[in-house]
């Protein structure tokens, strides 16, 4: 999946806008939106919000979590936690990219928010790298990836599945040669997962 496709999925997320125009309800295939009343907030999918914003037809109300204090807290939690913490939104990176890109004037302290989100992303990326490294070194064939967002999972896709497949092939070859040794299953990316041996 390329990042644009992840963005395509993320753009379905609802966001609150304040329109500057009046219009009756629009009956889309995916559901009704509207009616639009000037200066009355309503929820629309992100792709519509960005489009209206580009035409200067609305103000976007950033989601609750897009706030410096809140994000600093998330950043600290992420730093101190050994595992991945749950993000406030399944598509936080996409929302941040689109909103900060197209509606920065509707967000207070946009530059600071951009920096903190980038920090959070970087912390999580470095965790991903060290977890993947550990997983491969231990020759694992299963791992929990809870709390990782689609965009983050997507960054592992070019390398991790293929690497695990190669390990799997080597193990298979080896088990033909000598009796199977005891296998330990790893749940590295998130230790909250329990695996039971039978």
């Amino acid at each position: 999946m390329n990042p644009d496709e992840v963005e395509f999925i993320g753009e379905k997320q609802l966001i609150s806008i304040i329109p500057t125009f009046n219009s009756s309800t629009i009956h889309l295939v995916s559901g009704d939106i509207g009616p639009f009343r000037a200066s009355l907030p309503l929820n629309v999918p992100l792709w519509i919000a960005i489009n209206l914003k580009q035409q200067r037809k609305c103000k976007i109300q950033p989601p609750d979590w897009m706030d410096v204090t809140r994000l600093e807290q998330i950043k600290d939690d992420e730093k101190s936690s050994r595992t991945f913490t749950k993000m406030p939104s399944e598509h936080y990176m996409i929302e941040a990219k689109l909103l900060l890109g197209y509606a920065a004037d509707d967000i207070s302290r946009a530059d600071e928010i951009r920096t903190v989100i980038k920090d959070i992303w970087d912390i999580r990326m470095s965790k991903i790298r060290s977890s993947v490294d550990m997983l491969i070194k231990n020759g694992g064939s299963y791992a929990a990836v809870d709390n990782l967002t689609l965009m983050e999972i997507n960054t592992m896709r070019p390398l991790l599945p293929q690497a695990m497949d190669q390990i799997h092939r080597m193990k298979k070859e080896r088990s033909h040669l000598r009796p199977p040794t005891q296998n330990t299953t790893l749940s590295l990316l998130n230790s909250s997962h329990t695996s039971t041996s039978k």
Binding site: A144, N183, S197
Partner: peptide
């Protein structure tokens, strides 16, 4: 089942994994 008949895991609703 993971690892050819030797190990099993339970998946909670909403959990995410990388698996064969």
């Amino acid at each position: 089942m993971i690892e050819r008949d030797e190990e099993f895991v339970d998946l909670e609703k909403g959990s995410q994994v990388i698996i064969s």
